[in-house]
Amino acid sequence: MLRDARLVASKDLRVEATSRVLTTQVLPFALLVLILFGFGISPDQQVISGAGEGTERVAILEKVAPGLFWLAVLFSTLLAIGRSFAIESVDGNLDALRMAGLDPAGVFLGKMSAVLAELLVLELVVGLGCFALYGPPLAHPVLLVTTVLSATLGIAAAGTLYAALAAGLRVRDTLVPLLVLPVLAPVLLAATLATEAALFGPDGDGWPWALLLGAFAVLYTGAGILAFGTLVEES
């Protein structure tokens, strides 16, 4: 299973290395979304933060940077998982993978790992963009890295599972967002809160959410391993 996973993952990453769809299209899209958020929420608007003596005025953009970061990641995820299965639907590739005797669980893990790797690269760039554009502080780097890793694992697992569900359909592009976004809603919630704690502190508020993200990731990786064979099997 793990050997098959490695094969599929390296195949997907090699396809990406030659086609560069994600780096030349999805990545600029994600950065554009960050800028558009700035237009939607005026950079001059401020909120009063803190209570009692320690109140200060902060830009709304800085305050909501964690949520905006994860929203940009979610939108890009839709494109990344769409791409991940678009390369399989031409010439019956998915059938070919199955006929080649690859373990479906391995195929799932492979595609998931490729999406995971792509998303992590994307998040690194988008994250730097967030710091540059919105200027939030960074109080707890360890919590931030843990949050990003566990949340992205969950996003990649659930995203791959649901994209497989819509694989090969003509309505794939419109169906996948409807299916995936409600599923990822808890991830957005937990990741935003954990990231808020990581940026502004105290980190004690963030760890339970990071734990929830980890649980989500494990749950959906398990679900994908179990269900992928059933999903890609034709009648």
């Binding site: 569900l165 409600p182 599923v183 919630l189 929830l212 749950l219 269900a227 999903l231």
Partner: peptide, 18 residues
């Protein structure tokens, strides 16, 4: 059917996390 099962799982996650 796969979706029916996973959706229930998600129903629980959504309820508790919210």
């Amino acid at each position: 059917a796969v979706l029916g099962i996973v959706s229930f799982l998600n129903l629980i996650i959504v309820r508790y996390s919210v």
